[in-house]
Amino acid sequence: MEETNESTISRREMIVGTTAAIAAITLANVMGTQAAPHSVPLSLAKVSFTVNGQSHDLEMDTRTTLLDTLREHLHVTGTKKGCDHGQCGACTVLVNNQRINSCLSLALQHQGDTITTIEGLGTPDKLHPMQAAFIKHDGYQCGYCTPGQICSAVAVLNEIKAGIPSHVSASLLDTPQVTNMELRERMSGNICRCGAYSNIAEAMSEVAQKQA
């Protein structure tokens, strides 16, 4: 039997012609810049945002995710890549105080955004209370999921405070409480294969109690 992998190309749109050189015709007007059209099939575009308080004006390959922008271009490597497909949570960062998976977001989608990564929460000399609680309760082992867990944990407590319900909230109308089950459900987008879950929940409870 003979096979080739060329069949991998997939959908309707593709038939339109994948080899055509792409000109960034729309760049100049959309970006409000004088970007020259590119004749090579590489497309760049500009974006500006701040990361941990520092502003960046970047010109990126349009394909670059926020995650790869942070790690490979800005060399802010605290944010981790576990799957690159939204399936693990290691890449969790805070964008305008909301947590997202930075692997499923283009850098270009963040024009004007305020981005906070694990490095922006605290440093070894000046730990964020959540970082300190993770250390105290041993809420990590290999440490690879940890930046994502901590960013999520910080966001989760804010989400509960803001009254956003969850799958396990008994009532949609009552204000959600910081229960063990609420924390666990809300943290479920952050996989820890080392299995530090039980300790993470304790770290979070402690921070929540101190905040209350």
Partner: peptide
């Protein structure tokens, strides 16, 4: 624009684009 696709959150489209299951030539955010 031929081969254009809307990008909303991107959580499904970018996932599929990484695998080249989707391959838009132009993205409209």
């Amino acid at each position: 624009t031929p081969g254009a696709k809307f990008l909303a959150g991107g959580t499904n489209l970018l996932d599929l684009m990484k695998l080249e299951i989707e391959a838009p030539q132009h993205i409209i955010d």
